[in-house]
Lab assay of single mutants.
Amino acid sequence: CHSECLGNCSQPDDPTKCVACRNFYLDGRCVETCPPPYYHFQDWRCVNFSFCQDLHHKCKNSRRQGCHQYVIHNNKCIPECPSGYTMNSSNLLCTPCLGPCPKVCHLLEGEKTIDSVTSAQELRGCTVINGSLIINIRGGNNLAAELEANLGLIEEISGYLKIRRSYALVSLSFFRKLRLIRGETLEIGNYSFYALDNQNLRQLWDWSKHNLTITQGKLFFHYNPKLCLSEIHKMEEVSGTKGRQERNDIALKTNGDQASCENELLKFSYIRTSFDKILLRWEPYWPPDFRDLLGFMLFYKEAPYQNVTEFDGQDACGSNSWTVVDIDPPLRSNDPKSQNHPGWLMRGLKPWTQYAIFVKTLVTFSDERRTYGAKSDIIYVQTDATNPSVPLDPISVSNSSSQIILKWKPPSDPNGNITHYLVFWERQAEDSELFELDYCLKGLKLPSRTWSPPFESEDSQKHNQSEYEDSAGECCSCPKTDSQILKELEESSFRKTFEDYLHNVVFVPRKT
């Protein structure tokens, strides 16, 4: 048989008469490798580009789960590009990614509803959504962080984005990388972005840091009482949809009607710091009717980097990364020049730590249904340095008659930039024990000054392991946590139920 035959053949030295091919099969003959313009397919066939392209389009058009959109890589027609490569849609070739590779997620039936953290986790790592997304989240724990972890990498949506009755959302900033909504599939009414009845939605994105392009379709905003109209108009300008909307697409009466839409800028007039305090004062603000001013709200939190936005980490279910302080308005003076500047002394802060701070007014709604208010920009203030805590785990070892090696770990709280350490030492008198000992005694162990690591005695271990207080009263049991108490109650309830079950099964009433 021919060298490319495997198993047997019907005619000697003829690659077209093989029972099976050793390498690849091409047009009725066995070959060692697939010549151009053919590609290896499933490690035994040679196919042309049209064959591989037909497989790709067949799966793409069917949208069946589990099928493969075949691509070409290293002269092979394979189910998908290997790690580190992405497909070129024009020629199906796998090309190296520039940075992290995109991950295209194809949605069944063309859309997916995100109504819980669990459903959001199914899209973790996706960068391109081939379909439409509907966000409908009523509640949950730590929602802002969970949504950002699972949806934060999405850069492109081919269909539309719909935010509907998501009472738990305060902001859409968890879509931190969303840059493009194509609108290839539109919501009824030709809408590519749809926001309806979101009672706590206050911000779409921080438009000073976020760009969003909507290729096709219109915007729809109705019944978002805490979303200011200025935020919607800003989205029109940034996304390129200005002029597409009709009169009733953006409701003037049901958007922002319960919001404090600040239209003035508060400026800080005085800032002073110490290692654990920050004193702030800002310019006074009074609405047209000074009785509408209820006070100020001061927001602050630790910020290692200057990239904080107002609604980071917030949701309507209680999660809030900001510390909020309510401040009463100052006494009002008739003389504008003698107006008191409101302020606040922030206490209990960490030394040498940068804080993000902003302040906003708290006002009631005027009778004319106009909203007044003022808010400052987010500023960054760093507390002063102070003395560091003591170095940890000092170790001293003498390696000769004239040297001592000293080692330690950095302090747990540096409280500033540590530039150097101060080492103090003092000579001590020799131990009298060394002169009084009889060095001729056998088995004498000389006193040693070398360091030995501390260890816990058996008594201390027994005390720590004991669940009861000892007789001397030195140790006591740790208080039980809520989960331990709940577990004990469940076990007790189970024992009672099981005992009742045994009584009912074992003891049967005697027939009379």
Rank of each mutant, 00 (worst) to 15 (best):
K103Q: 10
K103V: 10
K103A: 10
K103L: 09
K103D: 05
V104E: 13
L107P: 12
T113L: 11
I114R: 00
D115V: 01
S116C: 15
V117F: 12
T118V: 05
T118S: 10
S119T: 04
S119D: 11
Q121E: 04
E122F: 03
L123N: 01
L123V: 11
G125F: 06
C126L: 00
T127E: 00
V128A: 06
V128E: 00
G131E: 01
L133K: 00
L133S: 00
I134S: 12
I137L: 04
R138H: 15
R138P: 11
G139S: 15
G140Q: 15
G140E: 05
N141S: 09
N141L: 10
N141K: 13
N142M: 06
L143N: 03
A144E: 14
E148C: 07
E148I: 13
A149E: 10
A149I: 03
N150M: 07
N150L: 03
N150C: 06
L153P: 06
L153F: 10
I154A: 11
I157R: 01
S158G: 05
G159H: 02
G159C: 02
Y160L: 03
L161C: 05
K162T: 05
K162L: 13
I163F: 08
R165M: 09
S166R: 00
S166N: 04
Y167H: 04
L169M: 08
L169S: 07
L169F: 14
V170L: 12
S171F: 09
S171N: 06
S171V: 02
L172G: 02
L172R: 00
S173H: 13
F175L: 11
R176S: 12
K177Q: 07
R179S: 09
L180E: 10
L180C: 12
I181Y: 00
E184W: 12
E184A: 10
E184F: 13
L186Q: 05
L186T: 05
L186V: 05
L186M: 11
E187M: 13
N190H: 08
Y191S: 13
Y191M: 05
S192Y: 00
S192P: 02
F193D: 01
F193A: 02
A195M: 13
D197I: 01
D197S: 02
Q199V: 12
Q199N: 09
L201D: 00
Q203L: 05
D206N: 08
D206L: 07
W207T: 12
W207C: 03
S208A: 15
K209Y: 14
K209F: 09
H210T: 00
N211F: 04
I214A: 06
I214R: 05
G217R: 02
G217Q: 02
K218P: 11
F220V: 04
H222P: 00
H222K: 00
Y223N: 08
Y223V: 12
Y223R: 11
K226W: 15
L227T: 06
L227K: 00
C228H: 05
L229R: 11
S230T: 07
K234F: 08
M235P: 00
E236K: 09
E236V: 13
E237H: 12
V238R: 15
S239A: 11
S239G: 13
S239E: 01
T241D: 13
T241R: 11
T241H: 10
K242I: 09
G243T: 10
R244D: 07
Q245P: 12
E246H: 13
E246T: 09
R247G: 14
I250D: 14
A251P: 13
A251Q: 13
L252E: 05
K253D: 03
K253L: 11
T254I: 15
T254A: 08
C261A: 07
C261V: 03
N263K: 10
L265S: 12
L265P: 15
L265A: 04
L265C: 06
L266F: 06
L266R: 00
K267G: 04
F268Y: 04
I271A: 04
I271Y: 06
T273C: 14
S274W: 05
D276V: 01
I278G: 00
I278Q: 01
I278A: 02
L279P: 00
L280F: 01
R281A: 07
W282I: 04
W282H: 00
P284L: 15
P284K: 10
Y285P: 02
W286V: 05
P287D: 04
P287F: 04
P288V: 15
P288Q: 09
D289Q: 03
D289Y: 06
R291Q: 15
R291C: 09
L294K: 13
G295Q: 15
L298P: 00
F299R: 14
Y300H: 09
A303R: 06
P304L: 14
Y305L: 13
Q306V: 07
N307V: 10
N307P: 09
N307C: 01
N307A: 14
T309A: 13
T309H: 10
T309R: 03
F311H: 13
Q314L: 13
D315K: 15
S319C: 09
S319M: 15
N320A: 09
S321N: 14
W322K: 00
T323Q: 13
V324S: 11
V325C: 14
D326K: 06
D328A: 08
D328P: 13
P329S: 06
P330K: 08
N334E: 02
K337A: 12
K337L: 11
S338P: 13
Q339I: 12
P342A: 07
P342G: 02
M346P: 00
M346L: 10
R347D: 14
R347H: 12
R347N: 09
R347K: 14
L349Q: 01
K350M: 10
K350A: 11
K350N: 05
P351V: 07
W352V: 05
W352E: 12
Q354Y: 10
Q354S: 04
Q354A: 08
Y355R: 00
A356Y: 00
I357C: 15
F358Q: 09
K360C: 07
T361M: 09
T361I: 05
T361G: 12
T361H: 02
L362H: 14
L362R: 02
V363G: 14
F365H: 13
R369M: 11
R369P: 05
G373P: 06
S376W: 00
I378S: 01
Y380G: 01
V381S: 03
V381T: 04
V381I: 10
Q382R: 10
Q382D: 04
A385S: 07
T386W: 05
N387G: 05
P388H: 13
S389P: 03
V390S: 05
P391M: 07
D393K: 15
D393H: 07
S396L: 15
V397M: 12
V397K: 15
S398L: 03
S398Y: 11
S400C: 05
S400R: 11
S400M: 05
S400E: 15
S402I: 02
Q403M: 08
Q403H: 09
I405L: 15
W408P: 15
K409D: 08
K409A: 11
P411W: 02
